[in-house]
Simulated scan of single mutants.
Amino acid sequence: MSHVVVSGANGFVGRALCRALLDAGHRVTGLVRRGGGCIDGVTEWIDASTDYSGIAHNWPAGLNADCVVHLAARVHVMHDTAADPDAAFRATNVDGTLRLAAAARQHGVPRFVFVSSIKAVAEGDGGQSLREDGLPRPEDAYGRSKRAAEEALVRLGGETGLETVIVRPPLVYGPQVRANFLRLMDAIWRGVPLPLGSANARRSMVYVGNLADALVHCSVDPRAAGQCFHVADSHAPTVAELVRSLAHHLGKPARLLPIPAAWLRTAGRLTGKSAQVDRLVGGLQVDTSRIRDVLGWLPPYSTDEGLSATVDWYLSTHRAHSCRCKTH
Rank of each mutant, 00 (worst) to 15 (best):
C18H: 04
R34E: 11
A254R: 06
H328P: 07
A201Q: 15
A201D: 10
P260M: 13
V69S: 03
D47C: 12
H217R: 15
E44G: 07
T81Y: 06
A179S: 15
A179P: 01
A91I: 05
A120F: 00
S145L: 05
A224M: 04
S302C: 04
N10V: 04
R183N: 13
D186I: 12
R74M: 04
F89N: 06
Y52S: 11
S322N: 08
R19P: 09
R178N: 14
H79Q: 12
A141F: 00
R131P: 08
R74N: 03
L295R: 00
S274M: 03
G127R: 13
A262Y: 00
R183D: 14
R292F: 11
R105M: 10
N64I: 05
V286F: 01
H318C: 14
V32N: 09
H235E: 14
V69F: 03
G37P: 00
A212K: 11
A236R: 00
V6F: 03
L307E: 12
L246C: 03
V208M: 11
A214R: 04
R19Y: 08
G157A: 13
W263A: 15
R168S: 05
G36P: 00
A225L: 05
A236Q: 01
A102P: 01
A275G: 00
A120Q: 00
L242A: 05
P175Y: 06
M78T: 04
V286W: 01
A9L: 04
G268D: 14
Y52Q: 06
C228G: 06
T303R: 01
G25W: 11
G126L: 12
A122H: 00
L250D: 10
A149R: 05
T271W: 14
T81K: 14
G37H: 02
L246Q: 01
C67D: 02
P299D: 07
D80Q: 06
R255V: 03
N93A: 14
Y142D: 02
A20F: 01
A179N: 13
H318K: 15
L298N: 13
H76A: 11
G36V: 03
R290C: 04
A82L: 02
A88Y: 05
L215F: 10
V69D: 12
R15Q: 13
A83Y: 11
V208D: 02
A320C: 09
A240Q: 06
R137C: 03
